[in-house]
Each structure stands twice: as structure tokens, then as C-alpha cells.
Design a protein around this nucleic acid. Sequence first.
DNA 1: TGGTGATATCAGTTTCCGGTGATGCCCCGG
DNA 2: CCGGGGCATCACCGGAAACTGATATCACCA
Lengths: 92, 92
Amino acid sequence: MRLLSDPARAAIVDALAAGPACTCHLVEDLGLSQPNVSNHLRALRHAGVVKAEPYGRYTYYHLNADALDAAAAHLSELAERARATSDNRREC
Amino acid sequence: MRLLSDPARAAIVDALAAGPACTCHLVEDLGLSQPNVSNHLRALRHAGVVKAEPYGRYTYYHLNADALDAAAAHLSELAERARATSDNRREC
DNA sequence: TGGTGATATCAGTTTCCGGTGATGCCCCGG
DNA sequence: CCGGGGCATCACCGGAAACTGATATCACCA
């Protein structure tokens, strides 16, 4: 989840939200170098945010919607806890 | 939203989810130095994730639940878009 | 089967960011 | 009014992470 901090990775995730794409698409659309994109994809892959799908000579990536939902649920839970506990201020 | 990338900041947000607290509480609970905590709080404050509330000599911080919900909604929207577009794979 | 294109990996460099120390401000209590 | 403590800001340093270039690997096609 802390992976979306980097602007390049956020751009990759945003591009993949429009549908599965192979590495060359991302390289063209984002204007980044190919190793750079590949490194970011590896990080996102290890975190389970994206899934790789070899397709002949290409490699297609698509978002893992469940992981995004889990992160969203975590944030919602924090917001809910914050609202529920907004009155018990600890004294110094 | 990219602010939750740092473990220290995530810990601060998590601590604040238990209720408003002043800087000294966070310093004690998280075992971080006071300037360190203050710097993180400043970043979170500028991002609108937390709100500062001067209280005599102390400064109480509390989470901005709306900002967390907005971030959660953004992630949910990404997940939904990913699910909706999972079939239109672009050809190379 | 050799060549080409797509992708992944690796080492090196540079840039960015978090942690620390020192300092100043403001509020409260004496 | 003045001393002390809570808090914020600034300058600096060290480490981590992103970008780059080179290279290896694999699949397709002639």
C-alpha cells in the first residue's frame, strides 16, 4: 500500500485501471525508460497490487482489484475509528 | 495520500485513530524524537490528513476522517475501474 | 537456426527524504 | 516578570530508493 507513494507507480496503477496492458504500452504512455517501468512493476507485483500474465512474447499486467479494495477498507476503518474516538482526548 | 508510505507516519495515523492526542503523547508512545514527530505532523497537516488544535500550552492533533474516506473512495474507484475494464486488453 | 524485438535483471550514480541536533517561540506557573 | 517546559522550525547528514546503461534471456519469425 505504501507502494502508491511514488508518482511513477501511481501513474502505472492509473494506466492499468483503464485495462490490462503490456510493458511496452506503459513505457510509451508514461514516457519512462523500460527498465524503470519494469522495476516498478516488479515492486507492485511483489506487493500483490498487480498481476503478471505472460502472453507469448509479451507480458500483460492487470490490477489486482482485491488488493486495492483491501487498502480502501483499511483506510475506511481508520476513518471510522477516528470518528468513534474523536471525543476521548487524553490529558497530558 | 502518498503520505502514509512512511512507517513512522502510518504509526502516527494509527495512534491518532485511537483518539486525539498531543505531541508529547505521540513522542512517548512511538519512541520517536520530538522534532521527528513534529516534522511528520507538519507533512500530514499540510496534506490535510490531520488537524492541529492548540490547547493552552499543548497542541492536540486529530485525524481528518473525511480525507481518509476520500482516499479510500479513490482506491475503491480504481478497483472498480479495474474490474470493469479487465477484458479490453490492448494489442501491441 | 540465426536475428529481432520484448522483457527482466544487475551494477552504478544521483537524487530525494527521513532522522538528529541546535535553536527560537509561546504559554503557563511561581 | 521571569524561569521552565511543550512545540515548531532550520541546517545538516546518512541511507534508501529511483533512474540509467548495459546485459542476459526468451519467444517469435524468416
